[in-house]
């Protein structure tokens, strides 16, 4: 895109990698589709996606590539599934932060790329993110959907309290483990095959 510095090849790369990303999360969401297991979406996703993400950075190494990957994923997941602009924006925001972090290392620093991955692992935070970021709005939304104030508070507390912290920690740990394995994979395979 003129001004964004991404070539047609980069954009096609973004398209295909976002296909891998979304396919993986869709499959995970379907498998984890029960009230409690669903919260594992973020940690389990984090455990799996590092090879895809790190290879993606190695293939693009340009500003805005991660942002657009996030934009595509956010639009598809946020807008086309939930239809909710707030969710889409939260997902996109996470991708932007991840992009900035990787950018600081010129997309070549392993440490920063891994940090970027840790942040990016929260991209599907979706409605939980909405609950956390815009708590009052979410409360009002619940009440105006027909639930009682007590009920709204109760569920919010449940979702944003220690549960959220536990999931966040699990996600970070899972992301780091995955990144460790991915780095290994990157060296032994993709670098030797000449694609990274």
């Amino acid at each position: 895109m003129a001004g964004m510095g991404l070539s047609v090849r980069d954009l096609i790369t973004i398209g295909i990698f976002s296909a891998v990303y979304l396919l993986a999360y869709v499959i995970l969401s379907t498998v984890l589709f029960t009230p409690w297991l669903f919260m594992l979406l973020l940690p389990v996703g984090a455990l799996l996606m590092a090879p895809v993400y790190l290879l993606f950075i190695a293939r693009t190494q340009k500003p805005f590539a991660i942002t657009i990957l996030g934009l595509v994923a956010a639009v598809i997941a946020g807008l086309l599934v939930y239809g909710n602009v707030l969710i889409a924006l939260v997902n996109l925001g996470i991708a932007v932060v991840a992009d900035v972090i990787a950018y600081l290392g010129g997309y070549k620093s392993l440490a920063l790329n891994v940090a970027s991955y840790v942040v990016m692992s929260f991209w599907a935070i979706g409605q939980q993110g909405a609950m956390w970021v815009a708590r009052d709005w979410y409360r009002d939304l619940t009440i105006s959907s027909g639930y009682s104030a007590d009920f709204a508070d109760g569920t919010l507390d449940l979702a944003t309290g220690p549960m959220l912290v536990a999931i966040a920690v699990a996600t970070v740990v899972a992301a780091l483990i995955s990144a460790y394995g991915a780095r290994n994979m990157l060296e032994r395979h993709f670098r030797r095959a000449g694609v990274a």
Partner: peptide, 21 residues
């Protein structure tokens, strides 16, 4: 509790999800 959490998330987002559909 589990059911309420699930049902809540559906109801809250159902209106916009319909337009996504």
């Amino acid at each position: 509790e589990a059911w309420n959490a699930l049902s809540l998330s559906f109801f809250v987002f159902l209106p916009t999800a319909v337009y996504a559909m």
